[in-house]
Simulated assay, not measured.
Amino acid sequence: MNKTLIISMLATTLLFSGCDKFKTKKDDTATTASEWSCTSESNLKDLQNFLKQEYLKKIDKRLRETSYYHSDQALLKKINDSLKFEIKGIRTLTPDTNKTNELECEGQIVVNFPKGLLKRAENAYLEAEVERECDECESSYSTLMDYLDGREVPLTVQDDYLKGKFGFNVIKTDKEGYSLSTRQQDDVINAVVIITQKAVQYEAYVKENSSIKEEQTQNTLKNAEQVELAQKAMDIRKKELNEEKSKVVERLNQTWDRFSDEQKAELQQDQSEWFEKRDIDCKVIAQKPAYNLSDSERETYQKQYNYWDDAMQQQNVDMQYTKCFNQRTNERIVYLNNVF
Rank of each mutant, 00 (worst) to 15 (best):
I90A: 03
K58L: 09
E276L: 10
E131Y: 11
N306G: 08
D186K: 10
Y301Q: 01
L126E: 13
E41S: 12
K175I: 09
Y205T: 08
G18D: 04
S17C: 08
T182V: 05
K163C: 06
A224H: 06
R237C: 04
S296F: 09
E225V: 08
L15K: 15
T4Y: 04
T94C: 03
A265M: 06
Y205W: 04
D318Y: 05
L103W: 00
E104Q: 15
F259N: 00
V206P: 14
Q158C: 11
W256F: 05
K172R: 08
Q201W: 01
E127T: 09
K207F: 06
D310Y: 08
L144K: 00
S139P: 09
K99D: 05
N292V: 07
S272N: 12
A224T: 04
R298K: 09
D135F: 12
F22G: 09
V339E: 03
L118F: 08
Q304H: 14
K247V: 09
T173K: 13
Q73M: 10
A204G: 04
S142W: 11
S82N: 14
N209G: 07
Q231H: 11
K77V: 07
K88V: 13
Q263W: 05
D96F: 07
D281Q: 10
P289T: 00
K88S: 14
S82C: 12
Q263L: 02
N223Q: 13
S71K: 08
E129R: 14
K239T: 00
L180R: 01
S260F: 00
T39H: 11
I109S: 02
N338P: 08
K213E: 15
L221R: 11
N169C: 08
L93C: 06
E273C: 04
N49D: 08
E106S: 15
R151M: 10
S140F: 15
N190Y: 07
E299D: 09
R132C: 06
K3W: 12
C282S: 03
Q184W: 15
N223G: 06
A204Y: 07
Y147A: 10
R62M: 10
K172L: 03
D261T: 07
D187H: 13
